[in-house]
Amino acid sequence: MGLFRTKLKPQQGAAAPAPTPRTAASFIDPATLMRIKSLQLRARIVVQGFLSGLHRSPHHGFSVEFSEYRQYTPGDDPRYLDWKLYARSDRYHIKRFEDETNLRCHLVVDLSRSMGYGSQGYTKADYARTAAATLGYFLSTQRDAVGLVTFDQAISDYLPARYRPGHLHRLMVCLERAVAGTSTDPAAALEQVAMTVRKRGMVVLISDLLVKTEALRSRLGYLRSQGHEVVLLRVLDPAELEFSFDKPAMFVDLESGRDLYVDPALTREQYKRNFEKHAAELQQICRDLGVDLYPLVTSKPMELALFNLLQSRLRAGRAMSRVRPGARGGKG
């Protein structure tokens, strides 16, 4: 799979969870998941399944609450004592407040026509919506502010990052919008985010990234220069990776409508070379800019997207705590 290996970094102070056979088997089959019509329900199922799976993990020390325990010392605010832990351990510990991380995350979701392709019975757009909804749901449960930008050749919807009642519902509604447009322009969406979001946060771009790479470089670089944590979730259909067609056909571009007579037997190798060359360029850009790039193959379980995001979330939170002076629960 080359570049598309699951990106797992061992976290400092926390053991990286290795997917156990039991954990992998508990992931929800994407095809089954997509049969659930309600996007919010889908998201909740994924999140709950992910969380329960992680809670059964034998590896301690990893907390999705993003909390950090330390022994109570005189002078700490007794309001932050974890009484549950006292009941269990008869010791006084201070817990880092979950709300102290308070991440602003913008989900930039590609809903162009190219995302309307799918060979698994559901489209990349369905998968991307579900991934975005899942991430949004999860972040909401963590009391993080979530925003949404949907785009095709231009921005379709924009929801600023908020954590308030009803915001998640509005996010789901925006995600439900059908694919449209005659081209894809993630650069415009990223530029909009860069111009409107002043506070540092996380930007998650969910797209197939089937565009020229140079336009992405400048916009991603801009976001990074503003201090945002940028994550790219590249949604791809297995057929786009392997080009597993066997019969010649008139291949029709979903966005432009252009058709081309293609004999897969003759062009498969060339397609893979071109595809991998484009992927390598993307990889290089992300490496250069410190952007995390994670492939999301639509045949793989949704939980992986969540897991990748957690990795990024941890890093972002840690970085922010280092930066903010007098952070509660922080080292100061």
């Binding site: 990349k124 197939d208 291949f251 571009d253 081309l260 003759l266």
Partner: peptide
Amino acid sequence: RRTPHGRQEFGSLMFLSPSPPR
């Protein structure tokens, strides 16, 4: 002229080149 047996929609043709008839 081998008329293609079908019509295949695809996400993007940016990595494809036309095939000669044979």
